[in-house]
Design a protein around this nucleic acid. Structure first.
Lengths: 174, 174
DNA sequence: TATTGTTATACTCTATAACTATA
DNA sequence: TATAGTTATAGAGTATAACAATA
């Protein structure tokens, strides 16, 4: 039997609420908005937060490695790191083993900025837990990880660090 | 007790996998990519699919109503409808009750395009169900709907159709 | 030859302000 | 005054191609 809206005018979106992609997008926007609101005056934007966090956890990581981890195009990371350097949050250092590569490190200011951002993140995440419950949140994370398995061989975290560039997948999303 | 990665190099993303916002974004991109791949040669892109679907279910809906339903800025819908008219998928008709408003309807070509897109959508959604299970998918949809409740008074579907424009929230996402 | 970082560039999506014609 | 549709414009985010230096 088919689902049909009883009163189309009252349900203008029709079945859209049953579409995982649509709801995923709406939820992502709501969560990002809450995240941004929680990051009062901080480095704020979600993408740059991720970059800061990964540098903080992996001091000396190169730009290419960072790009592979976060699925960011090399070309698009440049301006982000430029900005971090301009704000004295991170530094590019010459690699001792490969003179092409830049090793990235947070400055002490950058470390404090990251800690501040992580604290705000905790409150943000707590608001989510309040909405979903602790078990519900864990279930959600598992399901989201499962969904990342769509797109065949591809989400960033899986491709080994020494996959040739031609086969590596950096595409999409900061 | 704190979670710390045993080998930072093996887990470059650190706790990022535990961040709902981050995983939501990754999952959304994977699902959109799968959706787009499923829409072979169609009107394809997710946002325009939603517009087409809402017009199809609500013949005669005005551009403003459509914008309110999908949380799209009025200014940003114009080019989408222009394109639909150019492709002979939809038409703007003068409203009989309000000479400012445009009523939107699908052409017969547009109805066939929508049906084709919905069929492809079904396969896409079936792939998701295969990943999550039927019950898991339903659970996910509920949790995503709950997450949309973040951002206080605001997600599109809730604001009544005759909320004054000044208070209405169209922002974010097509 | 292949990779690293970089520049230049383009396209999509989203946002704001301001105009017009109606209401 | 306020709303509907429109124009113009600006800012993110993401994509590709090509180059110099290095591997």
């Amino acid at each position: 039997m088919k689902r049909r809206p009883k009163d189309p005018a009252a349900e203008p979106l029709g079945d859209l609420h049953q579409h995982v992609g649509y709801m995923l997008r709406r939820a992502q926007l709501a969560v990002f908005a809450d995240f941004i609101a929680s990051q009062r005056g901080s480095v704020a934007r979600p993408g740059q937060f991720s970059v800061l966090a990964v540098i903080g956890r992996n001091p000396g990581i190169t730009q290419s490695q960072l790009c592979a981890a976060l699925s960011v195009k090399r070309a698009n990371l440049v301006a982000v790191i430029d900005r971090f350097e301009a704000l004295d949050l991170a530094r590019r250092e010459a690699s001792s083993s490969d003179r092409r590569a830049n090793c990235l490190r947070l400055t002490s200011l950058g470390q404090r900025a990251l800690q501040h951002a992580l604290d705000a993140q905790d409150e943000h995440e707590a608001r989510i837990t309040r909405l979903l419950g602790s078990a519900g949140r864990r279930t959600l994370l598992k399901q989201l990880a499962a969904l990342c398995e769509l797109e065949g061989p591809g989400r960033a975290a899986s491709s080994s660090p020494n996959t040739p560039e031609s086969l590596r997948r950096e595409s999409f999303a900061i």
